[in-house]
């Protein structure tokens, strides 16, 4: 019985247009140097390059797990926003990371995050990190995110 239908936006398309901006405005993401490569509704892809300043194991030269955590956390958060029909930001409630095998020195890590369920207040996500395919995983993540209230008068709720 609402008077007007709420305006719906294709958030994923907006994000795709601003794919580099999304990372550039996050100082810690600039430090770890990952890139977002593709945004679809509820699905975000990215690349985490190997960098000498991110090495967490001197013997193997593998980058630190914290870099993968940062990468997957960020992709999951973006997957939440991309699944919405109005621009909202999210905050991580919790995140679980499982490390299957070490990443290889000098190789890019591909990351993929999916927001598989969305309520009015919480988003549920999972993510994968690998070199080639999801059959050979480096790490997986499962995270829940709280949806922040819309600000500046935009996006009023029913």
């Amino acid at each position: 019985m609402n008077d007007k239908p709420k305006q719906q936006y294709d958030i994923a398309a907006i994000m795709n247009e601003n794919i580099n901006v999304m990372r550039d405005v996050v100082p810690w993401a600039n430090e770890t140097r990952f890139r977002v490569t593709k945004v679809e509704k509820g699905h975000v892809f990215g690349v985490q390059p190997w960098e000498a300043h991110l090495v967490g194991d001197l013997e193997t030269g593998v980058i630190h797990g914290g870099v993968i955590t940062t990468f997957l956390d960020n992709l999951c958060g973006m997957a939440c926003t991309s699944a919405m029909t109005e621009m909202r930001f999210v905050a991580t409630i919790d995140l679980r990371i499982d490390y299957m095998r070490p990443a290889e020195k000098g190789r890019d890590i591909i990351g993929e995050a999916e927001c598989y369920h969305l309520t009015r207040t919480v988003c549920f996500t999972r993510a994968w990190a690998y070199h080639e395919t999801r059959d050979k995983l480096i790490a997986t993540a499962a995270g829940t995110f709280a949806i922040n209230k819309a600000r500046l008068g935009g996006g009023s709720r029913k």
Partner: peptide, 17 residues
């Protein structure tokens, strides 16, 4: 270490690391 410039919050990934 900032993750959100608008509210000047530390990045969750930096804290987790």
């Amino acid at each position: 270490l900032i993750g959100n410039v608008a509210i000047r919050a530390l990045h969750g990934g930096a804290i987790a690391s």
